[in-house]
Amino acid sequence: MNFLIEPFSQPFMQRAVFAGMAVGGLCAMLGVFVVQRGLSFIGDGLAHAAFGGIALGLLLGASVSHATWIALPFTVLVSLGIAFVLRRGRMRGDVATGVFFAVSFALGVLFLGLRPVTAQSVNVETVLFGSILAVSNTDLQIVLGVCVAVAIALALTWTRLAYATFDPELARLSGIRVEALDYMLLALTAVVIVVAVKTVGIALVSSFVVIPAATARMLGRSLHRVALFAVAIGVGGAALGLLLSYHLNVASGATIILTLGAGFGLALALRKR
């Protein structure tokens, strides 16, 4: 029992586990729609766009923590750009995301290089791999606030979003404004990705979006069951991963993702049987 209680008696672990579970659950919920639409790559694309935004913030003189506020509108704009190209350009999702991914990351590298030599040095590793154990009270409040807002938006649009995900044409014929939902889904994903980048970093955040949804897809036979499984996996994987990382004294973000990956492998093995 002490195995469970001891780690979470410490405030930094309490903040980390709340932030991890909130981000894990939310990314998983969005991931259900993203994965089902064949846009699994979008998490990576938007995470790299967030890097471009953070670098822009740093160029403008903000600290790493405050640069998130620049990254937020920057990443949302990129997500809307991807949605626009997908809609107008009749382009496949991976192509559109790949282009924005590369351009945003290149901009990030350019912005970092343009910073004056006198500027405070930046630990790029923190940006790339996150620092869930360093989540502050303010960070946690932002994460939980975003969680509530995005969860409300998803709850209000769930039935329409599900229909549009199944078949945009049939949904449109039923009077659903499919285009608005497409833009909304990518914008919400962008917001959640920016928040999640602070916890698990750019390199790993897309796993939070893809792995729980892909695992749940093998377990559920209806979309809402898949969503429930995905959220449970995202939340549970974050908590279990943190616990393991504490006891094994290894990197938290990576352990969370590996835990989620193990869950995916288990579901795959059970399905084959």
């Binding site: 089902q36 329409r160 199944f166 009077g175 659903i176 979309l223 809402h224």
Partner: peptide, 25 residues
Amino acid sequence: KTFDQDFPATALELIVANLRGTWPL
């Protein structure tokens, strides 16, 4: 060929979706 045949849904949900105009929870 025009719809996603891998979508996790039952026949009942698909039919009721057209009845309601939204996907049924």
